[in-house]
Design a binder for these strands. Structure first.
Lengths: 112, 112
DNA sequence: CACATCCATAGCCATATAGCTATATGTGGA
DNA sequence: TCCACATATAGCTATATGGCTATGGATGTG
């Protein structure tokens, strides 16, 4: 029950998406689908080795996957890897709702 | 339409929540509600000045608010500040769904 | 085979920042 | 007033990392 994702994974996802350049690359893969390193480099605003490095980070975090085809590597987004982030956020706001439930409960008791 | 949160805010929220210590402090405020710096320091695993610094970061990102009461400062979580993060994640997975819609559409056309 | 192309890796540097201790600031109590 | 307490700030250091250039390794092409 719960805790499907290790805190470790969550840590890495948060840390990986914190960098704007890296997040932009991931976002582009989400929007445009599978893309090669060369295409991603054009418009990334940084050099090709930097793009490769960021893609390696994203891959380590499970956020992208690479597919080799000849000389090119095609990367694509792994949408499911966003789950730890979304789950965590929902858990946090969940505590907020529970507090309101408790407040409502308290008010109901006070009514009696 | 959309773009209620500046990319700037999103950047800051991501960057702020990337640090595990800081995220743990925020998480505690979510779970336990309003807490003083002293209470947060106990169990944070770092010194009091570090906790104060992290709280200042969280405040700058809009993730917490502080309430002064005598010598103490009571901090509490601003759950709404998580919205940019959740919205972004949903936007990303939205692109995924659109792709499936397009695929389904394509398959429907091929059926004819 | 020789050469070009695509990507990954190595090695370097500059900067950002998370942690520390020491101290300042502000508040309550004797 | 004097001291204790709670928090914030200042100043420092070590480390992590995002950027670069140079180069290696692999794959097409003439």
């Amino acid at each position: 029950m719960g805790m499907v994702y290790m805190a470790n994974t969550r840590d890495e996802v948060f840390r990986t998406l914190a960098d704007p350049t890296r997040r932009a690359i991931f976002e582009r893969l989400c929007r445009e689908g599978e893309r090669t390193v060369g295409v991603l480099t054009a418009g990334a605003g940084v050099s090709q080795p930097v793009v490769s490095k960021h893609l390696a980070s994203l891959k380590r975090a499970g956020l992208v996957r690479g597919r080799h085809e000849g000389r090119q590597t095609h990367y694509s987004a792994e949408y499911a890897a966003l789950a730890p982030l979304v789950d965590w956020a929902h858990e946090m706001t969940g505590f907020w709702e529970k507090k309101f439930d408790a407040l409502e409960d308290l008010l109901n008791r006070m009514d009696q």
